[in-house]
């Protein structure tokens, strides 16, 4: 995918990393487990970081294989990606939600539903 400005990167909140920022347990559900090579991890982001910032951080960390599975070329979340923040599903509007100081974000990737014989 070309390095075009994406929704996720455009919307990223500018701030500095501080020790007091949100620590988020990120849980990968579905094939994303294999993409990132783990089932969960904990991230530390600067104060004021949002869900978008967390996604941008993960894209930076895991590169194109991760990005291509969660976003389209316009930077929009793919329809088979579902985000849950502390158990509550976030829609597209929820991307600006600030991360809580201690929270859990689940990234669920739904498989392509193969059909037919």
């Amino acid at each position: 995918m070309p390095d075009q400005a994406s929704t996720v990167t455009r919307r990223r909140t500018p701030h500095r990393r501080t020790a007091a920022g949100p620590r988020t347990r990120v849980v990968y559900i579905g094939p994303l487990r294999a993409t990132v090579g783990k089932g969960e991890e904990t991230t530390a982001l600067p104060t004021g970081a949002t869900v978008t910032d967390l996604l941008a951080h993960l894209i930076e960390t895991y590169g194109a294989p991760f990005r291509d599975r969660v976003m389209d070329r316009e930077g929009q979340l793919l329809p088979n990606i579902h985000l849950f923040l502390d158990g509550e599903e976030l829609g597209e509007q929820g991307l600006d939600t600030p991360l809580p100081q201690r929270g859990e974000m689940s990234l669920l990737m739904m498989l392509h539903p193969m059909e037919g014989g």
């Binding site: 579905g30 193969m114 059909e115 014989g117």
Partner: peptide, 25 residues
């Protein structure tokens, strides 16, 4: 079946036969 495979985390959940000829769908 698909949701179970999805939850497990494998993309490998389809190995069907050639029942419909594959090119139909």
């Amino acid at each position: 079946v698909r949701t179970w495979a999805n939850a497990f985390g494998t993309p490998n959940h389809h190995w069907g036969g050639y029942y419909c000829g594959n090119a139909l769908h």
